[in-house]
Design a protein around this nucleic acid. Structure first.
Lengths: 129, 129
DNA sequence: GTCCTTGCAAATAGTTTGCAAGCCG
DNA sequence: CGGCTTGCAAACTATTTGCAAGGAC
């Protein structure tokens, strides 16, 4: 529980806080390597999982095989473009999020505690081209 | 495109049509092996992907590392129990499904074509124990 | 006979882990 | 110093693929 400071972890945290892509572990690795060429992929994975455990970041998947990481920890959804595969954030009213849970509970024999949604379609850029 | 008959594929199809668990490839493999002890995991994967391509079954993930397969191809959601990890189906009104897409589109700069939802909570059995 | 399908094994992708050395407090 | 953290490499899990033999039509 008592995490010690490490510049590698700080660097990962800072990168996630500033990027808008929702990077995979490998993307994080390649980015941090610019500053710390000796960092290892294992260290990246270890720190990403530590940050997830602490609730500093979240981990999710788009079903493409690798996990993705996001420093925005407030409740929101994700969108994947069917054409360029880029991942974006999609925020919705908390009231509507609750409504989805409530509606699900009406159709389900058990207790709904939450949900994740992955939207797909065409992002603005691909729509225009 | 022209698929030839194979008893292995038929067996996989039949098993998926009758099971209510949402099996991983490995679970399918272990089940089919009772009837065809020599079937290989590669054959199971190949056939599952063929069936997905044909639209006979769907593939989805709960984020636990392995893909799951479902012979119910009509639009519906999935639920994972936080305690026993079992996966169940969760059907909702098509009107509400459309409403979710519409609401998302209001909050997003791009075209929403669809979505998947993974609900989580406690299933009936775990609620009672 | 043609060519799709299979079993087997090797290869690949993503992630985790054991270990000795390094760094924080 | 003690113990968390790192780099490296090996191990693991899930899935895919090359190939020669087998089966469908």
């Amino acid at each position: 529980m008592a995490l010690k400071y490490s510049r590698q972890r700080e660097s990962i945290k800072k990168y996630l806080a500033t990027t808008k892509e929702h990077p995979t572990a490998d993307m994080v690795y390649n980015n941090i390597r610019k500053q710390y060429p000796n960092i290892s992929l294992g260290t990246v994975y270890r720190n990403l999982n530590l940050l997830v455990d602490q609730g500093d970041i979240i981990k999710f998947t788009t079903g493409d095989g690798s996990d993705r990481f996001d420093s925005k920890t407030n409740k929101h959804y994700h969108f994947v473009c069917n054409k360029c595969s880029n991942v974006s954030d999609l925020f919705m009213e908390h009231d509507f999020i609750d409504l989805i849970n409530k509606s699900a509970e009406e159709n389900f024999n058990g207790e709904i505690q939450g949900h994740d949604i992955l939207f797909y379609g065409l992002c603005k850029d691909c729509q225009e081209s």
